[in-house]
Design a binder for these strands. Structure first.
Length: 508
RNA sequence: GUCCCCGUCGUCCAGUGGUCAGGACAUCGCCCUUUCACGGCGGUAACACGGGUUCGAAUCCCGUCGGGGACGCCA
C-alpha cells in the first residue's frame, strides 16, 4: 500500500449496466445556473441512452445549509424543463436521496476504511490546522496536512480518545507513486501522490465530506457516469483512491468545462447573475435558458453550409434548438474544452427570438404568468392603493417594478453629507447584508438597521440610498415591502449593477 | 508557491493535413420606417508565439507565453 501506483484500468466496461447519472447540488442558497447546465448535460446523457437521471441533495455542510434552498432547486430545475427519475421528492429504489439522511451509511463505510488501513483518525483541532496552513502559505509552500497522525499507535489513539478529543477521519494517500485515471473528454490524467493531500473524509461532527459521501453514494446508487464540472478534476484522484480502497469498480468521469464570467474567471455572483430565480423573475423564458446552456460547450452540431442551403435555413437557426432536438443531436464527443463565457448579451438576443416567435396568445399568456400574474399584481397593488388618486397613476409609482434598468442620478443617491466613494462602499455592505438575509419584512429591516448602526449611517441615509438604488428616485412605496415584492434575486442584481456602474471610470 | 486543465474573430461555436479560415451574438454602415424595435443588405474582426514533422499545417509533436481550476473539518 505504501509503494505504489494505482493505475486505473483504461476504460472499465459498464456496457452491460444501464446508464445512470446524477446531479448533486447542495442546498446552500439560490439555485445556480451551473446546476442547470450540468443538470441539462446529465439529463441529455441519460435520456439519449435510455438511462436514469438521479437528483441527489448534498446537504452535509450544516453551516451553509439554507432551508428554503432545496425546494428552490426542485422548482428551478422543473422550470427549465428538466425531470429526474429518482430524487428526494420522487423517491426511488436507492434512497434516501438526501445525504443528511444517510449518515449511518457513511459511518459504516468509514469503519471499513479504518479497518483496512486506508484511512486514519486525526486529532488536530481546526485551529491547529488553520495555523499550519497559514504558515505553509506564508512560506510559499503548498498547503498540505503534515501527516502527524498518520501512524499513531493504538495506544496513542486510545489516549487521545480518553481525553475526549474529537477527531476527523482522513484518507491515507500512499506516500509514493501516483494515480492515473481516465477523463472521457481529455484522456488519461496523472497525479503524483505527493500532490494529493490526506483528505478529511469524516468531519468531527460525524458528517462526511463531499469526497466520501459522493463516492459511497455514487457506488451505492449504481452511477455509471459521473458528469460534473471541471473544478473536480484535481480531487478525482482522491475519489479513485477511495473506490480502490473499497474495492469498487470506477464510474466513467466526464469533466465539463466551467461556465465563465466575461473576464474568464469561474462564473460567480459578483460578476454575473447566477441565480436561476433571477432569470425566471426577470422574464427569461425557460426554453431560451435551456437553449443557451446547450450552446455552451459546443455539443450541438452546427448545420453545415450544405444543409443551410438545401434546407433553406436562416443561418441563425443553427443556434436555436429545443430540448427535443438536443436529445436527438447533442454529441458529447463534440464538446470543446475551453471554458465558455456565459454571455448575457447573447442570452438576451436568444430570449428575444423566443419571445418574437410566440403567437399573440402565447405572449399574452407569458405576460399573465409572469409580470402581470394575479399574484404579482395583487402584491404590487397593496403597495400603492392608498397612495394614488386615480388608476392612471399606477405606473408613476410602480415603474421601477416593471423596468429592467433603473439608474439613479448622482443627486438622488449620494447623501448630502457623504462622499460618493463612501456611499458606494456602504452600498456594497448593504448588498452583502441583504445577500445573507431571509427575505421577509422583519429579517430585512433588522439586518439593515444593524448594518446602519455598525457603520454609523442614519436610518434615513441608509434607507434612502437603498431606495435610490432600487427605484431610481427619492419617492417610492415603502422600501422593505417593495424589496419583497420585487424579489431577492432581482433586488440583489439591481444592487450589483448599480455598484458596478458607479465604479466604472467616469468620463467627464 | 505546487499540481492539473485549456488556448480559432470582443463573445459562443464550425473546421480533425490542402478552405479566399465559415456561421451566430455584439459592433459599424446602408435600406425599410412617423419613432423604437423587428427585418433585409454589406463591412470590420481570429488560428497566442517559436521550433519541428510534412510537398503542404489552425489541424500532428515539443517548448514558451497566456488564461483558468484545485490546493478547506465547502461543495
Amino acid at each position: 500500500m505504501t509503494e505504489t501506483s494505482a493505475i486505473t484500468p483504461a476504460a472499465p466496461s459498464h456496457d452491460s449496466r444501464p446508464t445512470r447519472v446524477r446531479i448533486a447540488p447542495s442546498p446552500t442558497g439560490d439555485p445556480h445556473v451551473g446546476t442547470a447546465y450540468i443538470g441539462l448535460l446529465n439529463y441529455l446523457f441519460a435520456t439519449q441512452r435510455g438511462g436514469q437521471f438521479v437528483l441527489r441533495i448534498e446537504d452535509t455542510d450544516r453551516t451553509r445549509f439554507v432551508s428554503t434552498s432545496e425546494q428552490m432547486i426542485f422548482d428551478a430545475l422543473k422550470w427549465v424543463g428538466l425531470t429526474w427519475q429518482e430524487g428526494p421528492d420522487v423517491g426511488g429504489p436507492y434512497g434516501p436521496y438526501r445525504q443528511s439522511e444517510r449518515t449511518e451509511i457513511y459511518r459504516e463505510h468509514v469503519e471499513i476504511l479504518l479497518a483496512n488501513g486506508t484511512a486514519y483518525k486525526s486529532f488536530e483541532t481546526a485551529e491547529e490546522l488553520e495555523a499550519m496552513r497559514q504558515s505553509q502559505i506564508a512560506a510559499k509552500m503548498p498547503p498540505r496536512y503534515n501527516g502527524a497522525h498518520r501512524e499513531l499507535t493504538a495506544e496513542q489513539i486510545a489516549a487521545f480518545e480518553a481525553e475526549g478529543r474529537q477527531y476527523t477521519v482522513r484518507l491515507k494517500v500512499p506516500a509514493t507513486g501516483s494515480t492515473t485515471f481516465r477523463d472521457e473528454l481529455r484522456g488519461e490524467i496523472t497525479f503524483d501522490h505527493n500532490n494529493v493531500d490526506d483528505q478529511v473524509l469524516m468531519k468531527s461532527d460525524g458528517f462526511p465530506t463531499y469526497h466520501l459521501a459522493n463516492v459511497v453514494d455514487d457506488h451505492l446508487m449504481q452511477i455509471t457516469d459521473v458528469i460534473r464540472a471541471e473544478e473536480w478534476i484535481s480531487s478525482t484522484p482522491k475519489h479513485v483512491l477511495l473506490y480502490n480502497a473499497f474495492g469498487w469498480e470506477l464510474p466513467k468521469f466526464w469533466h465539463m468545462p466551467l461556465l465563465r464570467n466575461i473576464d474568464k474567471s469561474k462564473i460567480s455572483k459578483r460578476k454575473n447573475p447566477v441565480s436561476l430565480n433571477y432569470y425566471r423573475e426577470s422574464g427569461y423564458l425557460p426554453q431560451a435558458m435551456l437553449n443557451f446552456l446547450g450552446l455552451m460547450g459546443g455539443g450541438m452540431a452546427q448545420p453545415t453550409e450544405q444543409e443551410i442551403v438545401s434546407k433553406g435555413l436562416n443561418t441563425k437557426e443553427g443556434d436555436i434548438f429545443s430540448l427535443a432536438e438536443m436529445i436527438e443531436k447533442y454529441d458529447f464527443a463534440r464538446i470543446s474544452l475551453g471554458g465558455p463565457v456565459f454571455d448575457l448579451v447573447k442570452l438576451k438576443w436568444l430570449n428575444g427570438e423566443y419571445i418574437r416567435k410566440q403567437s399573440p396568445d402565447e405572449f399574452f399568456a407569458t405576460l399573465r404568468s409572469t409580470l402581470f400574474s394575479d399574484a404579482y399584481l395583487r402584491a404590487v397593488g397593496s403597495l400603492i392603493q392608498t397612495r394614488i388618486e386615480n388608476i392612471g397613476q399606477f405606473g408613476d409609482m410602480t415603474g421601477f417594478l416593471f423596468s429592467d434598468n433603473v439608474m439613479p442620478p448622482d443627486i438622488v443617491w449620494i447623501p448630502k453629507k457623504r462622499e460618493p466613494a463612501d456611499t458606494i462602499k456602504f452600498a456594497e455592505e448593504q448588498l452583502t447584508t441583504l445577500e445573507a438575509a431571509a427575505w421577509d419584512l422583519d429579517s430585512i429591516t433588522a439586518a439593515l438597521k444593524a448594518l446602519g448602526e455598525a457603520k454609523e449611517w442614519s436610518v434615513k441615509e441608509n434607507f434612502m440610498l437603498l431606495r435610490a438604488i432600487l427605484t431610481g428616485s427619492t419617492t417610492s412605496p415603502p422600501l422593505v415591502e417593495s424589496l419583497i415584492v420585487f424579489g431577492k434575486a432581482r433586488t440583489l442584481d439591481r444592487m450589483r449593477r448599480f455598484i458596478a456602474f458607479q465604479k466604472l471610470p467616469k468620463r467627464s
